[in-house]
Structures are given as structure tokens and as C-alpha cells.
Design a protein around this nucleic acid. Sequence first.
DNA 1: CTGAAAGCGCTTACAG
DNA 2: CTGAAAGCGCTTACAG
Lengths: 334, 334
Amino acid sequence: MAVTMNDVARAAGVSLKTVSNVLNDYEFIRPATKQRVQDAIVELGYEANLTARSLRSGKTRMLGLVLSDLSAPYYAELASRLMKAASLRGYRVLVEQSDAVAEVELNALQGPFRQLTDGLLFTPLVIDADAIAARLGKKPLVMLGEHILDPRFDLVTMKNEEAAAALTAHLLAAGRRRIAVVGARPEESTGSPGLRLNGYRKALEQAGVPFDPALIAPCEWRRDNGAAAVAGLLDKGVAFDAVFGLNDVLALGALHELLIRGVRVPDEVAVAGFDDIDEARFASPSLTTVSPGMEEIAQRSIALLLDRIEGQETAGQGVHVEAGFQLKVRESAP
Amino acid sequence: MAVTMNDVARAAGVSLKTVSNVLNDYEFIRPATKQRVQDAIVELGYEANLTARSLRSGKTRMLGLVLSDLSAPYYAELASRLMKAASLRGYRVLVEQSDAVAEVELNALQGPFRQLTDGLLFTPLVIDADAIAARLGKKPLVMLGEHILDPRFDLVTMKNEEAAAALTAHLLAAGRRRIAVVGARPEESTGSPGLRLNGYRKALEQAGVPFDPALIAPCEWRRDNGAAAVAGLLDKGVAFDAVFGLNDVLALGALHELLIRGVRVPDEVAVAGFDDIDEARFASPSLTTVSPGMEEIAQRSIALLLDRIEGQETAGQGVHVEAGFQLKVRESAP
DNA sequence: CTGAAAGCGCTTACAG
DNA sequence: CTGAAAGCGCTTACAG
């Protein structure tokens, strides 16, 4: 049916191996031979069969990306950048949405999804380091995010604590003293919620402001939950003069609820988020937030994963990368 | 290295073909034989090699999705739903971002991307129907969106004209007479911008309100362009009492600019969008928009594409599906 | 520098 | 109901 390497070899009057050599940029081919092969390829309109190549070579030139939900703005923007970075190196990205379900996360590690990809960019939300280590095959895996901080794994993440502390310090410097936090449990101290809450607590401590658990509203990181959490605080009569949404969609949900209730932002209550999604700049009022270095995260995680896939070193220890962050001061918390 | 079908056959004391029959749910297998094979599979931890299966069968059980930019909220939400719908039928979705570049769109039709997938969900933005027809191989392709309306192709789309007309009629009914449109050229009449503009014009006509080209601001569909377009109208001194952003991010960009300039929304200027992305509900004020039936679009386009892939009929004519829409009246244009 | 052969792990006619 | 054989289209040692 389709044109094969055999057809090309016949047309060029060489063996299969020579065609393969040309395709794989083998150095030592006589220019004349190479030219004949290339002419035959163009003439016949030959295209390499990627499946056959994969079967024989054991490589697919696809990377797996496991995240909870591609429709969340942060993940959508990250996935888009990861795909572009991978594409520049000749790789495609296959996305798996886990919905934060343990079974899906586990299956991504060893099932067909793993088989289809040469390496994994993994954002686990529910399974733990040991579960991952137990299912870790030979193929490389780079952790994205901060659910797992384990020296065994490569990890690309952001400065959660530092950035959250800087943001909180900014709110404190503006005179805010009762800063509500949306998206963590008061006692949480690991994972993205916990680390960001740690930063918040450190900044409070530094300023000599007491930590009040009543100000901490736990919820899943979705827009509607941000709104509901703030509604809950207001209904309970908890007094606060700022809201720190642990990500932007939470902050934007909170902002919406405050404005609906007639609370003036930032005059009465300042609002700040975390992520700097495209939307933050265009919210009304625009959202003060932290830019966590998403482009750097995308670049470095692709670079690290491809080094593992293509590089010689299998490495004993995991590499830990932390992207730099930037405070983005806007109208919602000047 | 890995466990193969041969290993399973040996362990179960049957031939390769019998193992294949069990794996592929062939009907006529003696229960005892089937059981022995299944036991061997579990015992050895056998997993089918998908690459080998693909090479032999010519099927990858992957669908291609070509869109301009996964980080755009509408596409991110659509991609997420498409993946879920495909997953229920045992397929994966591989995304290709075209950035609205013609070359990328063309390559998606015949290059390696096509080879890796059994069928394509294609949102072309720049190439035309003939270019597509010329490169259309044997594999099925379903158009998404409305850049191409051609009887040769299967198409799943939304009621652009009707929905835009309904939205415009809503603005007119609320007494708005100078409705600016952001995201189309005044003379445009095809593609998403053109069709939505047609709907706008029809509603104006129906209401006996003259069409004023000065109110039509062309720009690419990005948030910052929506803001810039409104800034342009205000700076030129064009009078208007409503803005219809041809998609939600344009409307939200416009809303932002209006509020920055101290224009009261909706009192002085009403704002409406199109798409009903998650963000619309939580904007401040919340955004009046059109919900174009995204879930229906996702479901039906997957169903249609898989019918083509798995079904017997190669069909002469393309099937055209239009999802239903709903007007979402919120605070920005009550 | 180039060739002839083996084999990656499946599915698919072809037999019986 | 089940088996023996061929072959999908490549890459990879092995020779020379």
C-alpha cells in the first residue's frame, strides 16, 4: 500500500540498510549514494512508518503528561507550553487527565499509557512517593508540582513557600492584619496548599501577627469553591481585611463573591492569588498574584526529562529544580 | 524482556492464535481454554504491546485534535471534554497546536501526526476546503468549528448565527441601540466571526436598527485585543451603549478596559460574550453570554468520528451536526 | 562505507 | 473451536 523503505532501496539501487543510514543521519555515506537515496525518497513520496520504527527501536518520541484536569487554566497554559517545548525537540505530548483519582494516577505509571511514551511528566495529587517508587519502571519520570518531595525522583517545581511569604508580606506591608486564606486546611504543611500556607505563616510570624486558624478556609481548587469559601467566612461573621487565594481561580472566585456582596476591593478587603494565569491581568479589579515562572518550569522539565531519555547517565539521585518567581502587584491588592 | 503473547501461549499450553482470540474477545473459544489463557495472563503479568498491535492492525486507537492554542479557555475546556468522551470508548486524544499557521494545519493532514492517529478532529483557521480535500487520505476527519462549511466533510458545530442573533435581540430588547462588536471585520460573513456577525446584523435588521460599520472592531480573539479594541473605540469617540465580544475572552478584555476607564457596566454600557467558559460566571460583573452546547459538541464529534473509524459505511456525503445553544443572561447585560 | 539477515510482538488469512 | 505460517515496516547487530 504505502511506500516503504524497500521501495526506496529498490528505486535507489541500494540496500535497506543504506536507506536506513540516510534516514538516521549516519555519518559515513558516500555523498553520491546519499543523494540517490534522497532523490528516491522525494520521488516516491516516502514517509517513515513511525509505528514500525517504534516497535523496533522501543522509542515512541512521545512524552506523557499526567495532570488532574486540562480545563483548569493553570494546567491548560502549562500543557500548551510543554507541548511547544517538546515539539522543538521532536517530541509529542500525550495528556492523561487523572481527575485526582488514585487509580488513574497508578495506571498512568505502568499501564498502556506508560508504554506509549518514552517518559512521564507527572503531577500526582493523591498517591504517595512509595506507591510511585514501587511502580517505577525503567523509563524516566519527572515530577511536576510539589505533592511529592522525595530525593529519589527528579522534580521541577516553584518556590511555593518563598513566593507565598513574599505575597503575604506585601499584604502586611499595606496594613492588612486579618488575611484569610482560601484553599488549605489550617494544619496542612505539605503539597502546594501546605507549602503556600507555610509561607503565609512565616510572613505573619516575621511581622509579629498571630496566626488565626479561623481565617483558613479549606476547599478544592476550583473557582466556585473560592466563592463559597468566602461566602462561608462572611456568613460566619469572621472579620478579615484581605483574602489570599492559594491559586488564581480561588482568588477570582473569592473576588466575585466579595463584589456581589458589596464589599469594596481593595478598599475594604484586598484580594491576592497565585499562578498569574492570563485571566489575572484582565480581572476587574486586576488580580495581585505570584508569577511562578511557568515558562521556566516548562522549559526545564522538558529539558530534564529528555536528558534522562536520551542521555547516558541513569543517575542515582533525583535532580530538584525550582523556578524563580515574581510578585505581580495589581489593583486588587496594591 | 517483557512478557509476550508467546510466553502466555506456552504457559497456557495453547497456540499464539488462541491467546490472540482470547485477547480480542473472539466468540468461539472453549471456556476451559479461555480460562487457562486468562490465568496465564494474570500469572505472568502480561500486557499487550500496543505498538506491535498498531503495526500489524494499522490502528493506533488515538485520535488527533488540531486546534490553534490549547491555552485558550474555550479550547482547553473542549479538549478536556473530548478526551473524556474518547476515553470512554477506549481512545486517546493527541493534540496538535497550529497557532493558526497554515503550514502546521497542512502537515497535520498528512504528516506523521496523521499517521499516529486513526482519525482527526480538525479546527482549521487558515487553510481552505480545497486544500483539505486535496490532502484528505483514507482516514476519517471531522471538522470542528465553522471555518469550513463544505458538504464534502463531516462537521460538528454550533448555531452561530441564531445564537448571536438571540444575544443581540436580548441587548436590543433591553434598549441598547449602539452595540459595538469586537472580533470581526465589518464585511466578514464566514467563519466564526462572520457567522456571529451575520446573526448580529439580522437581529438589528429585525429590530429596524441600522448597521453602523464604525461599531465593528476587528481583532484576533485574545483577551488583550478585546481590551485594546474597546480602548480604540473610546479614543476615537465612537458612541456605544453595549459591547458584543464575539467570544468570552474578548468580552472579558473589553469589560476590563471599560471598568478601568470608569465606564459603568451595565448601566452605561452592557457587555456580552460568546462561549460560556467557566470564567464567565465568575467575572465581576458576571458575563452575559451564549452557551454553545460544548458538551454536546464533544459527545457528538467523538461519536461521529468513531462511527467513521469503526463503522462500515464510508459515506459519500458529510454529516453536519449543530449543537443547541442557550442564552445565559447575567449581570453584565441583564 | 554497504549488504544480507534476523527479529521487535503482534494480527490475519488460511487450514483443518 | 484451534494451529502453523506469514508479514506489518522498520532497526540492529554482524560481516565484509
